[in-house]
Design a protein around this nucleic acid. Structure first.
Lengths: 201, 201
DNA sequence: GTCTATAGGAAGATAGAC
DNA sequence: GTCTATCTTCCTATAGAC
C-alpha cells in the first residue's frame, strides 16, 4: 500500500476494526488484528491514531450514526401513528435479523467504553444520542398525528429505548426472533396507549 | 493460607473473582488479580480449576442464582397483582441502585460467555433461566390473583425480561435512576393491562 | 496440597532506518 | 510517510521442588 494519505488510512482502519469486531468480538480486536484486516503494517496504526482508545472512540461514533440514520429515515414516510411507529421498528428489526453481529458489537463497545477511564464519557454520550433520537421521533410523530402524549416524553423515550435494547439483547442471546418480535410489538402497542387524541393545551 | 481444602479454595476464588469483576470489570479480571484478591499464590488457581473458563462458568452460575433468589422471594408475599408485581420490581430496583457494579458484571459476563466457544452454551442457558423465572412469576401471580393473561405468557415473559434488562442497562450507562424507574413502572403498568379478570376456560 | 519459577505467547506502543 | 525490529508488560498455564 504505497503512499496513501493518513486520512484515508484512518477510514480504512476504522472499517477494518468494525469488521474484526463483528467477526471476533471487541475483546479480540487487537491493533494487530485490525492492521492485518486492513492489510497494513503494525507501524501504520500509530501514525494514524495516537492510541487504540482514539480509534475506538471514532469507531463508536461511526457505528452510532450508521445505526441511527436508516432508523430515523423510516419515520419520514406517510401513515398513521401506528403504521409509522411499527414500520420504523420493523425496519430496525430486519436490520437486527440481518446483521446480528453488528448489533452485538454496539453493546460490547458501550460496555468496553464504560470501563475505560478515558472512554466512559463516550459511553454516556452514546446513550444520550440514542435517547435524543427517540425524543425527536416521539415529538415528531405526535406533531404529525395531531396527538399529545399522556406521559412525559423523557419517560416514554427511555421506555422505548429500553424495550428496543432489551429485546435486541434477548434475541442476540436466545435466538428466537419470532417471540422477541412479538414482545417488541407488544411494547410498541403499549406505547401507543399513551397517545391522547385531544390536545392538552 | 496453610492446608485449606481445594473445595473451600474454590469458593474463595469464586467470591474473589466476583469482587474483582465488580471493581475492575470482567476484561481486567485475570487469574493473577483473582488470586491476589483471595490472597493466594498463582499456582493455587490451577489445582482448583482446570482453566479460567471453568471458573467463569461457576461464577456465572453463582451470580445467576444469587440475583434470582431475592427477586423470587419478593413474590411470595400477600397483596394485589399490582402490589406484588410493583413490589417485586421495586425490590430488584433497590438492589440495582445499591450494587450497580454487580449488575454491570452480569451483562459483561453474558457477552464474554457469548463470544467464548466453550462458554456460549452457558450464556444461552443464563437467559433461559431468567426467562423461566419470569414465566413462573407470571403464572404464579395469575393463579393467585385469579386472572388470566390476554397475551401468550412466553411473549409477556420476554417483554418483562427485556424491559427490566433494558432499563437496568440504561441506568447503568446514564445514571438517571428516577426517570429510569418511572419508565420501568410504566412498563409494568402496561403489563398489567394484559391481565383479564374472567377466566378464559 | 502448596508454592516458586518459568515457559511461551500476545498485547500496546515506540525507535529509528529508509 | 512507511516499515522492521524491538521494548516492556501482562497474560494463561505448567513443571517440579517441598
Amino acid at each position: 500500500m504505497a503512499r496513501v494519505s493518513a486520512d484515508v488510512r484512518r477510514e480504512l482502519l476504522i472499517e477494518a476494526a468494525i469488521r474484526v469486531m463483528s467477526r471476533d468480538g471487541v475483546a479480540r480486536t487487537t491493533t494487530r488484528a485490525i492492521v492485518a484486516e486492513a492489510d497494513m503494517r503494525l507501524g501504520a496504526f500509530h501514525y494514524c491514531f495516537r492510541s487504540k482508545a482514539e480509534l475506538l472512540e471514532q469507531v463508536i461514533r461511526a457505528i452510532t450514526t450508521h445505526t441511527l440514520e436508516p432508523a430515523l429515515a423510516a419515520f419520514e414516510r406517510e401513515g398513521t401513528l401506528e403504521e409509522l411507529l411499527l414500520g420504523g421498528l420493523k425496519e430496525y428489526w430486519d436490520h437486527v435479523i440481518k446483521f446480528p453481529e453488528e448489533h452485538r458489537v454496539t453493546y460490547e463497545l458501550t460496555q468496553y467504553a464504560g470501563r475505560e477511564p478515558g472512554l466512559d464519557e463516550v459511553a454516556r454520550k452514546q446513550y444520550e444520542i440514542y435517547l435524543e433520537a427517540n425524543t425527536t421521533i416521539l415529538d415528531t410523530l405526535a406533531d404529525r398525528a395531531g396527538i399529545t402524549w399522556s406521559e412525559p416524553v423523557p419517560v416514554l423515550a427511555r421506555y422505548l429505548a429500553a424495550t428496543i435494547d432489551g429485546l435486541t439483547l434477548l434475541y442476540l442471546n436466545e435466538g428466537d426472533a419470532d417471540t422477541a418480535w412479538k414482545a417488541l410489538e407488544l411494547g410498541v402497542r403499549h406505547l401507543l396507549s399513551a397517545a391522547v387524541t385531544e390536545p392538552s393545551a
